[in-house]
């Protein structure tokens, strides 16, 4: 009993010293909340349902639901092994590789999109070679995936790398000495122990991919995904025209975030 009351009083003792950071933090929170609430206030339920059932909106939703998971999958399958290598080794030029991983995060997506175009656009060697066998790398769903992956993959790589870094290497050594090779050690020990961080990274990557606009607009303005559809609708009809799709996009992201956290039993993304 005395223990509990003491810890309570200790908590309240800490309040004054936390007052200033708490106030500063509150200002950011308010700034986050106001636009959100204001935007939601323009919602009319009936209008939203009708708008979302139009063919144009349906196509955009379908395209986004198709491309974002694929981009996330690609980023995870290739990014997690890279994260593991970066967490476990040091080599000459590692800083350069790390800078390369962060590059898509720090350049504006629209510039990233332009860069992708210069690499795989229709008149580049890669783009024309692909076109020759009937694959269009731009203005196609493949183009959307390429743009999304470019912009969103760093999230899973960076978070998974931190996750692997937090796994004590001696746990892997013990597994090796207990008779497991490097691959099964990765699968049995490293991967499960870094799971929380990897899941957090997957969520961030998915959220970034499904909301991707800048690079997608450059690489594949058509077929429309939800973000490009929102842009087109906004140009034509202003804010009110985009409320339904924006809400749907928000809804999808929230559902995925909740579902992944539920199955992955991760408390919150930020805790990781």
């Amino acid at each position: 009993m005395s223990l509990i009351s003491r810890s309570r009083s200790q908590q309240s003792d800490r309040l004054p010293e936390l007052l200033i950071p708490a106030l500063l933090g509150a200002l950011v929170l308010i700034y986050f909340a106001i636009p959100f609430v204001a935007f939601l206030a323009r919602t009319g339920a009936a209008n939203t349902i009708t708008e979302l059932s139009t063919p144009k909106a349906q196509v955009a939703i379908r395209n986004s639901l198709l491309t974002a998971p694929i981009s996330t999958l690609i980023a995870t399958v290739f990014g997690v092994p890279l994260a593991y290598v970066l967490a476990r080794t040091s080599f000459v030029g590692k800083r350069f590789i790390e800078a390369l991983v962060i590059l898509p995060l720090i350049i504006p997506p629209v510039v990233g999109g332009a860069m992708i175009l210069t690499a795989i656009g229709r008149f580049t060697p890669i783009g024309s070679a692909a076109a020759a066998i009937g694959i269009s790398l731009t203005n196609s769903l493949i183009g959307v995936v390429l743009a999304q992956t470019f912009v969103a993959a760093p999230f899973v790589i960076i978070t998974a790398r931190a996750g692997f870094g937090a796994v004590d290497e001696r746990l892997e050594h013990a597994s090796r000495s207990l008779g497991y090779g490097p691959l099964s050690t990765f699968w049995n020990v490293s991967l499960p122990l870094a799971r929380g961080a990897i899941i957090a990274g997957i969520i961030l990557t998915f959220a970034r991919a499904i909301g991707e606009f800048g690079a997608t607009m450059m690489v594949a303005y058509n077929p429309r995904t939800m973000p490009t559809r929102i842009w087109v609708d906004f140009i034509a009809g202003g804010i009110d025209a985009i409320v339904p799709l924006a809400l749907a996009l928000l809804g999808i992201t929230l559902v995925v975030l909740t579902a992944v956290q539920w199955f992955g039993r991760v408390p919150t993304v930020i805790d990781q």
Binding site: H173, A174, R176, S177, G179, G181, V189, L193
Partner: peptide, 20 residues
């Protein structure tokens, strides 16, 4: 030879039990 081919048991100073 890699560690898995050696049949050597190891106990370190810090715990390496698998928490999961």
């Amino acid at each position: 030879e890699p560690p898995e081919n050696r049949h050597v048991g190891v106990v370190f100073q810090q715990s390496t039990l698998y928490p999961h």
